[in-house]
Design a protein around this nucleic acid. Structure first.
Length: 679
DNA sequence: AAAAAAT
């Protein structure tokens, strides 16, 4: 079977059995080089690039979109037309393996273009099977090469029982370790019986062991993260190399090519064989292609690259298809109670409605410290004996509480990812490590706590739900102060304000909770109780970790400070907001808010006032000679004692009714927003 | 002070 491909090559197979392809519609000039077309598509391509006229015509062809009717849409047909090896197709279609039958639009277009030997920029939405789209043709191209030493052949014909470590043919780069592992896992489902070896190279794992595995088992496809890949390829003595690398794939290309990653990607490319000597196909997958990234794309890919854009109407992108709700919260201290309430409200309905799937949510925060704190709070939720099960359950019953972010060891990260994948019900507190590409089955909720750093991130996070024809819902918890930025960042996204479903978001946690409904009050108190047992150092650093993001997303620095200060006291239960380094305050542009900022300096947090005053004042250039800040603390201290674990002492924005400015802000921004239906 | 990513 493989012999057929080797003998005739893909190009001929395409012409013979699938005449309705791009190559068949290419302009007559191409026909002059007919003999070449019967050889491997790699040769056709390298020829094109060296003839300007031909290159131009190829570009013209690139503009044409392949008509829907001319594309192969069933995996089985790829085998029937002898485009893809039967074993590969069996692995994809077999019910006991991947069980796939029909290709998604991205898959059919990308596979088509790749088998033609084209460079491809695929703009595909999340959850449309991008991984398979590039793995299948990549593997086929490797199998097409007669010089490839496959695992089974090695056993049969060679004295050695392994394939070489220096025969990497395809390199797949991903922005996160988990995504790399996920891609490799999918690749390994496709390879049984083909003799292809897939290996990973990611950070956080034993480098020596990884190298050993590659050396002993060989490697045709290497999937990894930039740092480790660069590390491995820079060391020429480890025997791992890719002198015949024919395929380079950048998954989540927009991420890999943006600031912070692009340099490393270029360094990796410099370590790979020169594409002038070893023909190389480059593929980039990206849900969005910002202008800044386009420059890198054009620098990396051959000029005749093809763009695959999926525009079919019935494949609406997840972020336009999934119901998404905005919940306005009174303060940041309402965030975790609101998350708890979303979970409980759904669980209550789910227990009554067999059609609802078990609660499985990813909760996104913008800093790892926040993720850690939230996970700890939810793990600490008070447990009560459950009469029916005999176990002690917390408010969420048997829901798995997991966390994932870069502060965890790779072991813990892998555990969390696997456990959440397997869990039928669970809540995963996450940083943006899982925002892109991760495929957790059956996620019912994506909850974003605060605005993400950019629009793309919002869309990618939301894309973790409603995958594989399932439904899902998106939630975002926002403060009034973030509305302006939200309008800008998330314009055009169908967000609907929901002020009905939940009761905790607008509760005033700076006051007694007697006018809050008993159920909501119970949730707030459970969160407060769970928060109380966490150390203040942790809370202080968590608080500080949010500064940058908050001042970027709030339109008013004053409101931002008030929000943060309330969070510190009424959310975290600290006696006073943490101090801020004067230089940092300067950077954040907040040093003039002397009544709201506690400047770091001298004796430290709980020291006597006189200890703090000196250095603080000396640093503040905008000082008018009066120190409201310190006075305020002095006054507050004797007015309010710590009551229980939560001080009721007000700080900064005492409450909205006391501050006409804040109220005005709310009235202006919140109400009109709430009443206008944007869709 | 801030996701991620090499040790």
């Amino acid at each position: 079977m493989l012999g057929v491909f080797r003998q005739f090559g893909v190009a001929q197979a395409l012409r013979a059995s699938a005449p309705r392809t791009v190559s068949a519609r290419w302009t007559p000039q191409l026909c002059k080089f007919k003999p070449l077309a019967t050889q491997s598509p790699v040769l056709v391509r390298s020829f094109q690039t060296s003839f300007p006229a031909l290159k131009a015509s190829a570009q013209a062809a690139a503009q044409e979109t392949v008509a829907e009717s001319e594309l192969i849409t069933k995996f089985a047909d790829l085998q029937r037309h002898e485009l893809i090896d039967g074993t590969l197709i069996r692995n994809v279609t077999s019910p006991v393996r991947m069980g796939l039958e029909t290709m998604t639009e991205v898959q059919s277009h990308t596979i088509h273009q790749m088998l033609q030997g084209n460079d491809v920029l695929a703009q595909a939405k999340t959850g449309t099977g991008k991984t398979l789209a590039f793995l299948l043709p990549t593997m086929q191209n490797i199998l097409n090469d007669p010089s490839i030493n496959l695992q089974s052949r090695a056993r049969g014909y060679n004295s050695r029982s392994y394939v070489e470590a220096d025969d990497i043919r395809a390199l797949i780069i991903s922005p996160t370790r988990e995504l790399a592992e996920q891609i490799a896992a999918e690749a390994r489902k496709m390879t049984p019986g083909t003799g292809l070896m897939v290996q990973t190279a990611v950070g956080g794992t034993q480098k020596r062991q990884g190298l050993q595995r590659i050396q002993q088992q060989g490697c045709h496809l290497l999937v990894g993260t930039p740092g480790r890949i660069k590390d491995i390829f820079s060391d020429r003595s480890n025997g791992v190399s890719a002198p015949k690398l024919n395929t380079l794939i950048l998954d989540e290309a927009d991420r890999l090519l943006d600031q912070g990653f692009s340099e490393e990607i270029e360094e990796i490319q410099a370590l790979l064989p020169n594409p002038e000597q070893v023909t190389r196909q480059t593929l980039m997958f990206s849900a969005t292609v910002p202008k800044a990234v386009m420059k890198m794309v054009e620098r990396t890919m051959r000029s005749d690259y093809k763009t695959v854009k999926t525009v079919r109407d019935d494949e609406t992108p997840v972020h336009l298809r999934v119901p998404q709700r905005t919940v306005f919260i009174r303060g940041y201290e309402n965030r975790l109670p609101a998350v708890l309430e979303i979970a409980k409200e759904y669980q209550a309905r789910q227990s009554q409605d067999a059609n609802l799937r078990p609660f499985k949510a990813i909760v996104y925060f913008n800093s790892t410290a926040e993720v850690q704190l939230a996970a700890e709070v939810f793990q600490n939720l008070p447990r009560v004996p459950n009469a029916t099960t005999g176990r002690t359950d917390n408010a969420l019953g048997r829901t798995n509480v997991l966390e994932i972010h870069s502060r965890l060891s790779q072991r813990q990260r892998t555990y969390s990812a696997d456990a959440f994948r397997r869990a039928s019900s669970g809540i995963l507190f996450s940083s943006d490590v899982t925002a892109r590409g991760m495929d957790f089955p059956d996620v019912t909720h994506v909850i974003q706590v605060g605005l993400p750093s950019d629009r793309e991130t919002y869309i990618h996070r939301t894309g973790r739900t409603a995958r594989a024809n399932k439904t899902g819902e998106g939630w975002i918890l926002l403060h009034d102060g973030e509305v302006k930025e939200m309008d800008h960042m998330l314009s055009g996204i169908p967000l609907q304000e929901d002020s009905q479903t939940l009761h905790t978001p607008m509760a005033d946690l700076t006051k007694d909770l007697h006018d809050v409904s008993p159920a909501a009050r119970a949730m707030i108190e459970q969160v407060q109780q769970a928060t109380a047992s966490i150390g203040s150092t942790v809370k202080q650093s968590t608080w500080r970790s949010q500064l940058g993001h908050v001042f970027r997303t709030f339109s008013s620095k004053r409101t931002a400070l008030e929000t943060l200060n309330r969070l510190a006291v009424h959310g975290y239960g600290l006696t006073e907001p943490p101090t801020i380094n004067p230089a940092l305050a300067q950077n954040l542009g907040i040093s003039r808010y002397r009544d709201l900022v506690r400047m770091e300096g001298g004796g430290g947090g709980s020291g006597r006032r006189s200890d703090r005053r000196g250095p603080e004042r000396s640093h503040d250039r905008e000082s008018s000679g009066r120190s409201f800040g310190s006075r305020r603390f002095d006054n507050d201290d004797h007015r309010f004692g710590a009551r229980g674990s939560f001080s009721r002492r007000s700080f900064g924005n005492d409450d909205f009714s006391d501050r006409p400015r804040s109220r005005q802000h709310r009235d202006r921004d919140s109400s009109p927003y709430g009443s206008r239906s944007r869709y």
